[in-house]
Design a binder for these strands. Structure first.
Lengths: 186, 186
DNA sequence: GACTAGGTGTGATTTACATCACTAGTTTCT
DNA sequence: AGAAACTAGTGATGTAAATCACACCTAGTC
């Protein structure tokens, strides 16, 4: 489990045993049941989470009570309501387990401490943020340029395993389409 | 002009005169005419740009030749086709002047050099990337949850000056709506 | 001073998708 | 084992927005 995190980080920057021990010292582990909330709307966001195993959904609930899924977080993903986390303001999103899930938790304080202690980790987080930002821009582009069928096909192509793991209802809410319309696609 | 950049950076991290001189040494200045391209599709992306004055549009052109505007970059914004820039692969986006524009140019090599030389600047770029990523996620949310009228109202509220500076045609292409539909909004 | 290219507004028609309504299978919980 | 909750498919209907088509206006250009 630690090895998985280490391998994940070392895809960006290499670490000595001591450095990795220092990383671990800033994290806590948590086991969560399906349907459990890691972040709830209006509450303060204590942690950013690294998913070891399982699956999370990051959700915005609109005024009409309809759920919109911003992203799924599976193995090796970092997830949080980052706006609320970094600015320490109440969450507008919620983060909930789709399956039983194991995560590492990183508090904002520990995040800053870790960056100060290990510049390498700051570089690691810079890379994560950079490519996270690029990925979000790709999603904007996909919403601007494609219809539902195409978005569904793209998702199938890029994350076939994810599509198999989740219900059509969740998938529809991620694609920004009604459950019924998704059900009618080829 | 340098003062503007310095003020911009110092909103995140404070710099000594020497450190700022070092930042400037990594940048080159460029003056561009309206309609001029800073980045063109299929070409390699040499620079990330800091906009001193003027206005740029970041555009994706789809197979049908229709333009989709991913973002506008005005004073104090950093812009590029960051995917192509960081991975040094051909651009899929283009970056074009909407007005006469003055920019500072930062090559990827100089970006890495600057981060290595001044950890403060790495922290600065980490902040930019973090909040860039949050902003992109907000845009996804807005596309998922709101209709055209609401998106237009939101934009008017957040960037009233931008809306005045650009044509309705460009605005429509940013909001992901046809020119005609935008024209029919209240 | 005519000529071209962008930019804008408005009607008519079409289309992709949402919503409503119903049936039915499958998990989960007690 | 039976109830409750979640999931999935499909028909009928409604609607927001795209598309097509046209008129008009302004700014730059030879």
């Amino acid at each position: 489990m630690q090895q998985q995190l280490r391998a994940h980080i070392e895809r960006s920057v290499s670490l000595t045993d001591g450095e990795f021990a220092s990383v671990l010292a800033h994290l806590t582990e948590k086991q969560c049941k399906k349907r459990e909330f890691l972040i709830q709307e209006d509450q303060t966001v204590e942690y950013a989470y690294f998913v070891v195993s399982g699956l999370l959904k990051l959700v915005y609930t609109d005024d009409a009570g309809k759920q919109h899924i911003l992203s799924f977080a599976m193995e090796d993903w970092w997830e949080s309501d980052f706006r609320a986390y970094y600015t320490q303001t109440p969450a507008t999103l919620s983060l909930q387990c789709v399956e039983d899930t194991v995560v590492f938790c990183l508090s904002l304080e520990h995040y800053h401490a870790l960056c100060a202690r290990l510049p390498k980790m700051e570089r690691f987080f810079l890379q994560k943020a950079t490519f996270g930002s690029i990925a979000a821009q790709q999603r904007v582009l996909s919403l601007l340029t494609t219809n539902v069928q195409q978005r569904y096909d793209q998702l199938l192509q890029h994350y076939p395993r994810l599509v198999q793991r989740i219900s059509k209802t969740l998938l529809a809410s991620y694609l920004g389409v009604s459950r019924e319309t998704l059900s009618r696609l080829s």
